[in-house]
Simulated assay, not measured.
Amino acid sequence: MQSPRSRNIDRKPKARRWIDGNTESSALLLGAIRTLEAGYGGDFSGFVDFAPAEYRFNGEESGGYVLLRARKSGSVRAQVQIEADEWTELELKDSGDLRALVELITEHRLTDFDFATERSQAEFDEAVKAALDDPQSERKERLKYADPQAKKVWRKVAVYTRNPDVVAEVLHWANGNCEECGKTAPFLRSSNGTPYLEVHHRQQLSDGGDDTIENAVALCPNCHRKQHFG
């Protein structure tokens, strides 16, 4: 009998233990889940109680499926249902492969979402990079007049367009160290050589939190995951 699915990882002890015990190997799986959940998660999407962890997406519009199975190596096996009896399999090894998965889903109209969120994230990352390249004095000047309330863009879900100056300033003050555990960033970005930290809002924007320096903190991936799943 198939194990019922749940978006709440705490209800799947085998999957939870594997994710907690394999933080590096589970990183790509969790990233893929976050990307697809915004645009593809149906009412029955969720974790199955397997180890390594597995997540199954049910398309609300098509009834189709995307299955994500983590591998001990850190890669993810993705199976996409193109037709009732036709499946395509992809091996995800990095974010580039994840983009290929998104394009496949969109190409075959498995969902009515256009995954604009992911494209917006890429544009936002570029804006943060540009803000980091600016003198700190310029960022501070822009922050004086910035609206603390993030703009909300309605697609099929609410997507918040964050202020890149807030992210840049928080990363600047963190100086490459996680503000939760105090450890040095786990690696440098291949794109620009800067320490990889993730900016987390203490009070989530979706809960009415302000997009400000005071409401944000720079975290390593492990501590960031702990904030959301711990």
Results as ranks from 00 to 15, higher is better:
171 L>T: 07
127 A>V: 08
94 D>T: 07
58 N>K: 10
156 K>W: 14
229 F>I: 01
201 H>C: 13
134 D>Y: 13
78 A>G: 04
3 S>T: 15
187 F>K: 07
4 P>S: 06
117 T>D: 10
45 S>G: 08
72 K>C: 04
68 L>N: 09
222 N>I: 00
24 E>R: 03
194 T>C: 00
220 C>G: 03
65 Y>M: 13
202 R>G: 08
106 T>Q: 15
220 C>Y: 04
23 T>Q: 07
183 K>I: 10
183 K>D: 06
7 R>K: 13
214 E>K: 13
221 P>W: 01
49 D>P: 06
158 A>C: 12
140 K>M: 03
66 V>A: 14
190 S>R: 02
1 M>E: 10
180 E>N: 14
58 N>Y: 10
211 D>Y: 09
77 R>G: 08
115 F>Q: 10
179 E>Q: 11
162 R>N: 07
210 D>Q: 14
223 C>L: 02
137 S>E: 02
180 E>P: 04
217 V>T: 13
208 G>C: 13
196 Y>A: 01
179 E>V: 12
55 Y>N: 00
49 D>E: 01
224 H>E: 00
79 Q>C: 09
128 V>E: 13
197 L>Y: 06
149 Q>P: 14
21 G>K: 15
1 M>K: 10
113 F>E: 15
219 L>Q: 12
225 R>E: 00
169 E>W: 15
200 H>W: 13
115 F>I: 13
219 L>N: 06
106 T>H: 09
195 P>Q: 02
83 E>C: 02
62 S>V: 11
38 A>E: 08
186 P>L: 03
205 L>E: 01
140 K>L: 05
194 T>H: 00
169 E>L: 12
145 Y>P: 03
210 D>C: 12
150 A>D: 08
49 D>C: 11
148 P>V: 12
97 D>A: 11
118 E>G: 09
209 G>V: 08
130 A>Y: 03
33 I>K: 15
176 G>A: 06
130 A>D: 08
146 A>T: 10
4 P>G: 10
10 D>S: 08
26 S>N: 07
46 G>L: 05
223 C>W: 05
8 N>S: 11
53 A>F: 05
11 R>A: 12
89 E>V: 05
127 A>Q: 09
199 V>I: 06
177 N>W: 08
90 L>Q: 12
2 Q>P: 14
152 K>I: 15
36 L>S: 11
85 D>Y: 05
181 C>F: 05
102 V>S: 09
63 G>A: 04
107 E>A: 14
184 T>G: 03
1 M>S: 11
198 E>L: 04
92 L>A: 11
219 L>Y: 02
183 K>S: 05
83 E>Q: 09
158 A>K: 15
110 L>G: 12
217 V>E: 12
185 A>G: 09
143 L>M: 10
75 S>V: 00
199 V>E: 03
30 L>S: 11
106 T>R: 03
81 Q>F: 01
74 G>N: 06
85 D>H: 01
227 Q>F: 01
9 I>E: 00
181 C>N: 08
96 G>F: 03
93 K>E: 09
56 R>M: 02
16 R>T: 01
170 V>H: 07
225 R>S: 01
137 S>N: 05
71 R>A: 04
113 F>G: 12
124 F>R: 02
195 P>D: 00
86 E>F: 01
124 F>Y: 11
144 K>V: 04
123 E>P: 00
198 E>D: 06
115 F>M: 14
178 C>Q: 07
54 E>I: 12
207 D>P: 12
179 E>N: 15
216 A>E: 04
179 E>T: 14
17 R>A: 09
222 N>V: 04
